[in-house]
């Protein structure tokens, strides 16, 4: 028996049959989860530690619910775009890719509106207090992820007009889609844990002196 067989027939695709780049994207998403984790944890740890300035009472839950809806719909548009290119329906792919990117831009618009309102109406900036630092950094990094996704999607769309994105390499779209959905699930967590749970009964917390030093008269 030979223990190392050297024959040209041995050429094969990959050991697992899985695509390198798709596996890379999943590994990256797992790693990116380890990036958002500490940011969320820092925010939660500091939830009741701000000693001055506004806290979760600045949230505009109805508006954020709408922007959450927008991002969820962009995920739907993304899977429809993928279904389009997998079936070779380029029109369907292009329409839904454009929709995904546009909805992503609308979401960014909501976020810019929110940040501006915080700054002008409540005087809340990253420098104001711990709430401002942690919340704006966390959602800012999420917004940066969305922005990267939007650029990626427009690039795919333009590349498709140059004939570089076709049914054969629908994997390019699938990988961009994985990234896009991941950004969506991070938002699902942020909306639930940071916005809804964070702002629940916040008026009472403010009245009772939720701020760390308020009780000391500080």
């Amino acid at each position: 028996m030979q223990y190392i067989v050297r024959s040209p027939e041995a050429e094969h695709a990959t050991s697992t049959g899985l695509n390198n780049r798709k596996l890379l994207m999943w590994a990256f998403l797992g790693s990116d989860a380890m990036f958002f984790g500490p940011l969320i944890a820092t925010h939660l740890i500091y939830r009741t530690e701000s000693i001055q300035g506004p806290i979760e009472n600045v949230f505009n839950i109805p508006v954020t619910t709408i922007s959450t809806f927008v991002l969820l719909m962009s995920s739907l548009a993304m899977v429809l775009a993928l279904a389009g290119i997998q079936q070779g329906k380029m029109g369907m792919f292009r329409f839904w890719t454009a929709m995904t990117a546009l909805l992503g831009m609308v979401f960014i618009g909501f976020q810019m509106f929110e940040f501006t309102e915080f700054a002008h109406k409540y005087g809340l900036t990253p420098r104001t207090n711990l709430f401002g630092s942690t919340f704006l950094t966390l959602t800012g990094f999420h917004g940066a992820h969305v922005t990267v996704g939007v650029i990626w999607l427009w690039s795919l769309l333009f590349a498709s007009f140059r004939g570089k994105v076709k049914q054969e390499n629908s994997l390019d779209v699938e990988i961009a889609g994985l990234y896009w959905h991941f950004v969506d699930i991070v938002w699902i967590v942020i909306f639930g844990v940071i916005y809804l749970v964070g702002a629940y009964g916040v008026e009472e917390r403010v009245l009772n002196g939720a701020h760390a030093l308020a009780g000391l008269g500080g």
């Binding site: 899977v79 959905h181 699902i188 967590v189 639930g192 749970v197």
Partner: peptide
């Protein structure tokens, strides 16, 4: 809220 968020999370990860 945590349970509902987890449900949404699982749906997106599982299907989308």
């Amino acid at each position: 809220i945590l349970m509902l968020s987890a449900l949404k999370f699982i749906l997106v990860v599982g299907y989308y």
